[in-house]
Each structure stands twice: as C-alpha cells, then as structure tokens.
C-alpha cells in the first residue's frame, strides 16, 4: 500500500518536473513572446491569488484576538495560563501571548507588532509613553526582586543589609556575580542598583568576577548555581527553580522600595487603532477587582508571588 502510494507520488513528481522543465526550455528556445506573456500572466495570477487569500484569511482570523507581548518572567511564572481563560470565556477574544525580554517587548510595541504589553521596567516604559507609542499605562501589581547567592555566602551578606549595601559587599569582596545582561526588566533593575551604589557600569564589566550570562532568568540562575555566584532574580522564577539550585539560597535582606518590581499594562498605539474594542475589553478586565484578586491569590509551590495595587 505504502509502496503503491510512493510510486504514485514518484510518478507525479517526475511528471511535474518534466512539465516545469519543458516549459522553461520551451519559453527559452522558442523566442515566442506570447508564450512568455502567458507564463508571466499565470505567475502573476497565482501569486496575487495566494496573497489575497492569505490577507483575507488572516485578517478574519486576527479579528477576534489580541497580541500581548510580555516578559519571560511573567510567562514562566504561569500567571497568564491561570487567569487568561477567564477573559477569553467572558469576552470571546483570545489573547495570544508572546514572551520576550522587556526591552524586546517594548521594541515590538514600537514597531506596531503588539497590541498590549505587560512589562516591568518603569524607566524604559516612561520613555516609551513619552514618545507616544503607548496610549494608556497602568501599574497593576508588584513582587519583589530577591538576591540569590551561594550557601557559603562569601560576601557575608546578612539580614540587616538593604540591597545597596549587599551589592557594595559583593563589590568589595569581589564575589562572583551573574548578570542577566539582556536588557530585561531584571537587568535594568540591577543596573539601577549598581548606579545607586555609585559603581560605574564600564568599570564593573572589567571585573573578572562579573559574569554576563546574556540569558533568561532560569538560565542565569543555573549559571549562578554552577559558578557559586550571586544574582538578582524575580521571586516567581526563583521559586520555580529553587529545588534545582542546590548551591544557592535566597539572601535575607531588608525589604526596601528599591527591590519592588512593578508590572505595568500598556495599550500600544497600534492596539488602540487596530483593535479598539478588544484592547478596551482587555484593559477593563485586567483592572477589574476580580482579576486583581485572581492575581493576588495566584501561588507557586503554595507561595503567593504577586502583590496587587488596589
């Protein structure tokens, strides 16, 4: 049976190739302009039919959905999988989630490829809004950044330190520090803390103990685990990975506003132009008390990870 099918396929292939080639030879050798014209016309018809059907199908398809660009930390925390089905059943609009670094997500928003953004780099977001790429922005919830470090704690960080003091201890001890280095929200935060410490970015890069992982949070945590280094992480990703990070632990440091990790929802200009009603519905739903309490009650390994601004 299979062999028969394959024989047929083989026959069809040879016929196809023969027709194609003989046509090419014919067009080339005959010098017959009418043949050439027919060939060109056929090609144009075929291509435009393809393009037209493609446009039609995908515009129809795109009508009932919005594209949400978010950060890997949000997607990897599993939050969206837990809450989005509620929005989709209520409004009949599906949300397509693309997970990127915050820098990349904002860039996609600028280029008009995303309708909504859920990101966590306030400084970059402000620039984004000022340049008119975003129509509306609201800071919805937050969690804390945590300092992760080796169980041996070579820099001697203890619970009385705040994050700046802890970073200074790492600097003075020359202990291994693994940086995301990917312009993600976490990386931007890390750079801000070094700046508050008064440590120059360029000077930092020259230190051999400063490792640039240029990777996502999970990978960066693994690098820190392998190299016995410190790293800054969002709490959600750390909780997911904790069991696999045998050399690391969460450093006890004082909770100050600096380690607050604010997540904001942005409706992009493209979103409000292309999908006004859909993005409106999404905005209202995200801001509703019900959604906020769903976010507040979301747990990883039975620990709450997000605090909501009410």
């Amino acid at each position: 049976m299979i062999i028969n099918l394959l024989d047929c396929a083989q026959f069809a292939c040879t016929r196809y190739v023969y027709i194609f080639i003989s046509f090419s030879f014919h067009v080339q050798n005959s010098g017959d302009n009418s043949m050439k014209r027919i060939y060109v016309i056929l090609a144009v018809i075929a291509i435009s039919a393809l393009v037209a059907s493609g446009i039609y199908v995908w515009q129809e398809h795109a009508r009932q959905s919005i594209l949400l660009a978010t950060t890997t930390s949000v997607q990897d925390s599993g939050l969206l999988d837990a809450i989005l089905p509620d929005f989709e059943t209520r409004n009949g609009i599906s949300v397509h989630v693309v997970a990127l670094g915050t820098g990349q997500a904002l860039e996609y928003g600028k280029r008009g490829d995303a309708h909504c953004l859920l990101v966590h780099a306030p400084a970059l977001e402000n620039v984004f809004m000022q340049n008119g790429y975003g129509i509306r922005r609201i800071t919805l919830f937050w969690n804390t950044f945590v300092l992760i470090g080796p169980k041996t704690n070579p820099a001697g960080i203890n619970g009385t330190d705040n994050i700046t003091q802890a970073f200074l201890k790492i600097w003075n001890a020359g202990a291994v520090f693994v940086s995301r280095g990917d312009l993600s929200g976490t990386h931007v935060k890390e750079m801000e803390i070094w700046a508050v410490c008064g440590i120059d970015k360029e000077e930092l890069k020259e230190r051999t103990w400063y490792v640039n992982a240029s990777a996502g949070m999970g990978t960066t945590l693994q690098v820190a685990n392998e190299r016995n280094g410190y790293t800054l992480s969002d709490i959600a990703t750390y909780l997911r990975w904790r069991q696999k990070l045998t050399n690391l632990m969460q450093m006890q440091i004082a909770v100050t506003p600096e380690i607050r990790n604010d997540y904001s929802l942005i409706i992009t200009k493209t979103g409000s132009v292309e999908k006004p009603s859909e993005t409106d519905a999404f905005w209202n739903w995200m801001c509703s008390a019900l959604t906020r309490s769903m976010i507040e009650n979301y747990t990883i390994n039975s620990e709450r990870v997000y605090n909501v601004y009410w």
């Binding site: 393009v51 493609g54 446009i55 995908w58 515009q59 398809h61 795109a62 594209l67 397509h96 693309v98 280029r111 008009g112 490829d113 493209t270």
Partner: peptide
C-alpha cells in the same frame, strides 16, 4: 512581516505561514 515592515499589511507575523 513586522507591522512597520514592507509586508506588515498582511498581518502574517506570529502565524504559521
């Protein structure tokens, strides 16, 4: 295929095609 690219009008980014 990006919205600000030459074929952005086709809305093909993030699709199977």
């Amino acid at each position: 295929l990006s919205s600000s690219g030459p074929f952005g009008f086709m809305h093909l980014l993030f699709t199977l095609p």
